[in-house]
Design a protein around this nucleic acid. Structure first.
Lengths: 219, 219
DNA sequence: GCCAAGCTGACACGATACTGACGCGATGCC
DNA sequence: GGCATCGCGTCAGTATCGTGTCAGCTTGGC
């Protein structure tokens, strides 16, 4: 994960950089907003740590401009400003989280992890669904705490359901999703895979809507 | 948006409730974890505000248990505990955000909005009709919050009414709509399906106009 | 009170879905 | 390179479910 740290305090900046590096993340550290803008323009970051008081301007307008031009990179604000109005302004400007100096570096790590996971598209690193715990990034599924091995096709099918919770998916839609054009299947392949998935994950995971298709169970 | 507030301090609880209500959100306020568990079990909330110190237990194990059984409802922790370790424990237990008392109510609103936006995941428009909530895309119907399973024919019939609210539809029209040319039906099929729909959705959903046909109830 | 229209429980049949078994092809390991 | 393993598409037999039909009952109009 690539992180851009925008912080002019050299002591704090170095401490944050070392903490993050210790978490096996890659950090670029800049001390000015104009170099930050260049960095964001030229490269892609997974997360921005933004100090609000910088030598060449304030962070809030910078953040607003960033969002205005469509950048959705998650931003955690680091600031000494303890004014509640500033915190609100920061959140409203599009920040994802807030750390007030002085803060604990371990907490910063926790929050970076939290925001990064959110950004990965999931509210949590682990999506839990009834007795199932799913890590989309790691492609792993646990049932009642026990790991379950899914094959590629099984995973593709299950993931399709997870991405559309509650949505009814016809067999035709699922075939489109699982098979590229040309490599059509002609039999009850989807039924068979649903059957295999149920055997591994539990019979209530996917519910049948007869004549129409399948959907993820309410669980 | 439905919010569950778990807070035993009556003064703070009332203030939070009023603030949220002022934001046009619906709030249920409980003061104990066991009633909170009941509420979460019985209904669906979009957000939980959780105090960590409650008369019948602490919030962190409660939150862990919630996540363990698959509930992904976003949770914001409200607490007087200013220990950094507690804040990390809260985030690790699956909380989405943290507010340390005393906090500003406007900031709470901002954070609720932030969390809600993050989770605003329902792209499907929900049509509500009296006690019914219908998601046309997902082909799902809820009555009084409870899901109702409709078969293919039942859905086709119900959808026909929904697309023409208030309009009178004769049995012949409905047959044309539900059956393709050639696969005619010869008996009281429509009556039978209306009967089944009423049994599932409530007797007042479809009203009979004797001699002419049916129409969607006023609800 | 009579008749027509509508309602609904029961039933049977056809359609649909489930699942264990099989075989082919791809992959991995000596 | 040969052998074992594994994934997966297919098939067939079985189980399940939906729904059209009917019969008996209820309701409503006159």
């Amino acid at each position: 994960m690539r992180i851009l740290l925008i912080e002019d305090d050299t002591v704090l900046g170095a401490a944050v950089r070392d903490q993050i590096a210790g978490d096996r993340q890659s950090v670029d550290w800049v001390t000015r907003l104009d170099t930050a803008a260049d960095a964001l323009y030229g490269a892609s970051y997974d997360l921005v740590l933004l100090d609000l008081m910088l030598p060449d301007g304030r962070g809030i307008p910078f953040l607003k401009a960033l969002r205005a031009r469509g950048d959705v990179t998650p931003v955690i604000i680091l600031t000494a400003l303890d004014q509640i109005t500033d915190r609100i302004a920061g959140l409203n400007a599009g920040a994802d989280d807030y750390m007030i100096k002085p803060f604990d570096l371990a907490e910063l790590s926790a929050r970076i992890g939290s925001v990064a996971r959110r950004y990965a598209g999931n509210p949590n690193p682990i999506i839990t669904h009834g007795p199932l715990a799913v890590d989309l990034a790691a492609r792993s599924v646990h049932r009642d705490g026990r790991p379950v091995q899914l094959t590629a096709r099984e995973w593709a099918l299950f993931e399709t359901f997870l991405q559309r919770p509650g949505q009814l998916l016809s067999k035709a839609q699922l075939e489109d999703k699982l098979y590229t054009f040309g490599s059509e299947v002609e039999s009850n392949t989807i039924e068979a895979h649903v059957s295999r998935l149920r055997k591994k994950l539990g019979s209530d995971v996917i519910e049948t809507v007869r004549g129409l298709g399948y959907r993820l169970g309410a669980a």
